[in-house]
């Protein structure tokens, strides 16, 4: 029998919370490391752009399904 939405939320809320805090800490870690690098301008790396797009994907279009599929496509080389 399929779980209800509340059952899923009850079971997985803390794991989702943990994943978000861990992501925030990872971005902070990158920033701190970059701040310690002498003479560096803004950090430019296509992977950071992808992470930003992925985070935006979570916030936008929240009514659309298949977030994981769309996120994985975002991280894919399609050409």
């Amino acid at each position: 029998m399929m779980q209800t939405a509340l059952q899923v939320l009850d079971r997985e809320y803390l794991e989702a919370r943990c994943a978000l805090v861990e992501l925030a800490a990872t971005l902070d870690r990158i920033d701190r490391a970059h701040d310690h690098e002498e003479g560096s301008g803004p950090l430019q790396d296509s992977r950071l752009d992808l992470l930003s797009e992925a985070i935006a994907l979570l916030q936008e279009e929240s009514h659309l399904p298949n977030r994981s599929e769309r996120m994985l496509l975002l991280f894919s080389d399609l050409d």
Binding site: L14, E15, V21, E22, A25, D28, R29, R32
Partner: peptide, 12 residues
């Protein structure tokens, strides 16, 4: 594992 601090964040 989930509800407090993780090893990476502790090192941070």
């Amino acid at each position: 594992p989930i509800t407090k601090c993780t090893p990476r964040r502790a090192v941070d």
